[in-house]
């Protein structure tokens, strides 16, 4: 392709001007209440809005909104498996694909799946797999596609919850629902279901012992199906954090159950009494 040499071209790499914005040194003091009015050191999750069956083409779908975090999930299948070289054909395969819309984060992402997205996909797969009765679907695969429309923190936790709802909506046999909850440890105090600024504030100060934790939990079996943490945490804080996250999952449970019941009612309305 001939290039116009007279034209002044922009730089190859561009950055968002907000990155260079001088922010106040300490964004979130650890003793004051949180920016959205929730309490620290308490299992104070954001109220969620959930709805099943929004995408008519998919076998099952779900949408979850918590604060500004918006996640959409579609489930396709079970269909015949693509890969024929799988040695173990006795049980089905669960494939997950988690993608971020380029405009979902403060910095623009790309449409191509990066290594971070692949990591999220893997984490999602490992969290969901224990709950799905894959042995009931031999020689077939179930596809879970998660699209993050807006990332406002605790994205993996909400993606897990959303995906398990979509699986239930698709009528896939499962042992239990999978619920996700995140926590941000900040020295001695913690915040449950952190927002994006709360998740990314740890670079601004230099205090020790900061970390993040995400737990995926099967509420009626009392099993942890996914666990992931980073940052610095003492062993006691970590185990206490896991318990707090489990508590957070239990808070979410009735809401998800109600949404599923509503979806079933809508799909098959009870026979009118005559």
């Amino acid at each position: 392709m001939p290039t116009d040499t007279k034209r002044v071209r922009g730089p190859d790499v561009s950055q968002s001007p907000f990155l260079f914005w001088s922010r106040p040194a300490e964004v979130l003091p650890s003793h004051e209440p949180r920016a959205d009015g929730r309490q620290r050191d308490q299992v104070d999750v954001r109220p969620v809005f959930v709805r099943c069956g929004l995408v008519s083409q998919a076998k099952g779908s779900a949408y979850i909104e918590a604060g500004n975090t918006k996640v959409l999930c579609c489930v396709y299948g079970p269909r015949e498996t693509e890969r024929k070289d799988e040695t173990d054909m006795k049980s089905g395969r669960l494939t997950t694909d988690m993608r971020f819309a380029p405009f979902s984060c403060p910095e623009r992402g790309s449409w191509i799946q990066g290594s971070q997205d692949k990591d999220f996909s893997l984490m999602l797969q490992e969290s969901l797999q224990p709950a799905v009765c894959l042995h009931r679907y031999p020689r077939s695969q179930i596809e879970v596609n998660v699209m993050v429309l807006e990332n406002s923190g605790s994205i993996l936790a909400h993606a897990v919850t959303c995906a398990s709802m979509a699986l239930a909506d698709a009528g896939i046999e499962m042992y239990d629902l999978v619920l996700g909850c995140s926590l941000r440890q900040d020295g001695g105090s913690y915040v449950v279901d952190p927002t994006y600024p709360e998740e990314n504030s740890w670079r601004s100060g230099s205090r020790e012992k900061r970390g993040g934790l995400t737990v995926a939990f099967l509420p009626s079996l009392n099993q942890v199906s996914g666990l992931q943490s980073d940052g610095e945490m003492a062993e006691e804080t970590l185990t206490a954090g896991i318990r707090t996250c489990i508590e957070g999952c239990y808070k979410l449970y009735p809401v998800i159950q109600q949404a599923l019941i509503k979806a079933v009612r809508r799909a098959a309305p009870p026979a009118a009494e005559s």
């Binding site: 224990p130 970390g211 942890v224 199906s225 666990l227 992931q228 945490m233 003492a234 970590l238 185990t239």
Partner: peptide
């Protein structure tokens, strides 16, 4: 110093919360 910088569950199964505590210890 015994500070935990990363944990992660891998594999296709799930774990009991009690056994996670034992395992981290």
């Amino acid at each position: 110093k015994g500070i935990i910088t990363c944990t992660r569950k891998v594999g296709r199964g799930s774990l009991d919360p009690e056994s996670i505590c034992e395992m981290t210890e």
